[in-house]
Design a protein around this nucleic acid. Sequence first.
DNA 1: CCGATTTACAGGTATATGCCTGTTATTGGA
DNA 2: TCCAATAACAGGCATATACCTGTAAATCGG
Lengths: 151, 151
Amino acid sequence: MNGPTDLCNNAALRQATRRMGQLYDDAIAPTGLRATQHGMLTQIDFMQQPTMRELAEALVMDLSALGHTLKPLMRDGLVELTPDENDRRAKRVRLTTMGKAKFQQALQLWRVVQGRFEAAFGRERAAELRSTLNFIASDEFVAAFRQKRDT
Amino acid sequence: MNGPTDLCNNAALRQATRRMGQLYDDAIAPTGLRATQHGMLTQIDFMQQPTMRELAEALVMDLSALGHTLKPLMRDGLVELTPDENDRRAKRVRLTTMGKAKFQQALQLWRVVQGRFEAAFGRERAAELRSTLNFIASDEFVAAFRQKRDT
DNA sequence: CCGATTTACAGGTATATGCCTGTTATTGGA
DNA sequence: TCCAATAACAGGCATATACCTGTAAATCGG
């Protein structure tokens, strides 16, 4: 037994996340972005003007946490919010021209880390891991979990 | 393709961590502790008066980040620091009597979530996942990664 | 059409974490 | 022994993330 992470799923996940964060952060640092920020830009680019709520849901993130996280990106002019035409409560998030450029720039560096990670970890194994992690993050899994809880 | 997490190991890991954190946090909330804090108490209990450096290393955590994280626990009287006898630079971390009690209390709730998680996810599968995550967090893996990097 | 409820955010507060910059104590030579 | 280099933290600053409490806009039942 090497410690609590041999037993606790949550603790093991956090440690791996810290480590992975170090590797990806280091690689993307030259752009001035954190890996989390690049992930955010990637998701925004992928979703094409999502509302805050949609984006938060896609990221498995609290809505207000998303709001806080977007602030530095807005301050730096990479992201902007525009009120939705049909629902003035909602705000749509999108990349600015500068945001798109920064995203592309970071994407180059991301490809490098990603490649190195998979070279060290195994491409197939990484795909399986992502699949497992995506399952844990899914609503489907949470529903299954809650069923066990309510038993 | 459901989104970037199908491709990025780091993004997938973060989302799963946020989700898992929600589940474990909810379960342990009645004690007034976060799941991360319970994890911290668990590690401290396991290590028996580690120095800050040793504890940070075991948790794959930055030393100063550890310092910050310990503050609320110290403020609440669950943890205390004592200077090392042989090396006055070092400080040893340990649980107070109250800290041990709180740890045991949270441990009961942890067992419940842990059990529910494994019921929903699969016990064997969870063990494999932890093993994989621990590997990613290990120095061994980082060394392998850096080799690819230096190529 | 109106009031009650719900939805989508904004802000405050608190923890989680990391980097950079001191400050102090140790240690390894010359 | 004294000095330079190193090790172990402490603090400031910044992002990441969550919960709780407003506020404004949309929606729904009567």
